[in-house]
Amino acid sequence: MHEITLMQGLALASLAFIVGIDFWLEALFIFRPIIVCTLTGAILGDIRIGLITGGLTELAFAGLTPAGGVQPPNPIMAGIMTTVIAYTAGLDAKTAIGLGLPFSLLMQYIILFYYSAFSVFMQKADKYAETTNTSAFALLNLLTIFIVALTYALVTFLCTYVAQSTMQQLVLSMPKWLTHGFEVAGGILPAVGFGLLLRVMLKKQYSPYLIGGFLFVCFIQVNNLLPVAVLGAALAVYEYFNSKSKAEMLLKIESQSKSSEDFSNGI
């Protein structure tokens, strides 16, 4: 069991403020769980647990992307709270993922509320656009971004520092069968997220890579994921240059066919 200090709580709130802006703008993609969990672990002084929770949470959220007005569970709160719960309650990463999801859903509902609430600013935005008042228009956008980022910081501070004793008592009071259920659910979530990603990205011509990678991981003993990552990078580089050479060959064939056309009739 570990306690989160006031300085750590403020640092986590600052982290949520920054990545909340990035998530709202989708600029640098530092809001992804693998980065958020790692930074959270570094703030808590246990970067190892941040890397472990980051890898599992990133897999769980790999296939969850916004579609129009539909928002998946919030990846920022999932990353922060999964790491915090694993650190403070001494749980493994799989159990912590299941316990961190309610906080992720809470932030999801808050963001959906902002999508509707910010419609009150549209009339002013239209007015500023018509009068070409660019400074006021920019300030209006910055105001909404600041509100969202401040909400991320406030919710994170309340959940990680203010309510940490209540959260620890809740975890300790859970029966063993319920904790095991969260562990099983947390172990399934990465597979579900990766399955959703494959449903969108997997093509027939790439299926040999999937089968080869599956066999490599399951039947060859490796101490870490570095060999798998290197093998995947090598296959990606091969596929890139192979596709590039095919495109150049097709372009060459097209140019040769155009140059060999008969123009004897002036047509």
Rank of each mutant, 00 (worst) to 15 (best):
P208G: 05
T134V: 15
L154Y: 13
V148K: 02
L142I: 12
P33L: 05
I76D: 01
Y209S: 12
G100Y: 02
L202H: 05
S135K: 13
E3P: 00
L106T: 06
G9I: 04
Y128P: 01
E183M: 03
T65S: 04
D46S: 10
G79A: 07
P72R: 00
L106I: 10
M122T: 06
K246I: 08
G50Y: 03
G55V: 07
L10K: 13
I253C: 02
D92G: 15
L225V: 12
G63V: 00
Q256D: 15
A233H: 04
M81F: 09
A27R: 07
A191F: 12
D46T: 09
L51V: 08
T53A: 14
F214M: 15
I145L: 14
A60H: 06
T156H: 10
P33I: 02
Y115S: 12
G68L: 07
G181Y: 06
T166A: 09
L25C: 12
V84T: 14
I34H: 02
F121K: 06
C159I: 01
L12C: 10
N223C: 08
A27I: 08
I110W: 00
T65R: 01
L112Y: 02
L250P: 01
A136I: 03
A138V: 12
G50D: 06
Y87M: 05
L231P: 04
G213F: 10
Y238C: 12
G69K: 05
G54R: 02
A229N: 09
A27Y: 06
I4M: 14
F146Y: 10
G232F: 07
N223P: 00
L25K: 11
G68T: 09
L143H: 05
P208S: 03
D126R: 09
G68Y: 07
N74K: 01
F214G: 14
T65P: 00
I35Y: 05
L15I: 14
Q221D: 14
L44D: 09
A96M: 08
A163I: 02
S104H: 03
S173Q: 12
G181L: 10
G55E: 08
V148P: 00
Y114W: 09
G79K: 00
I85K: 05
A93H: 05
F146R: 01
K246Y: 06
E261D: 12
L56R: 00
Q123T: 10
P102E: 14
N141Q: 11
G212R: 10
F216C: 07
Q108N: 06
S207W: 12
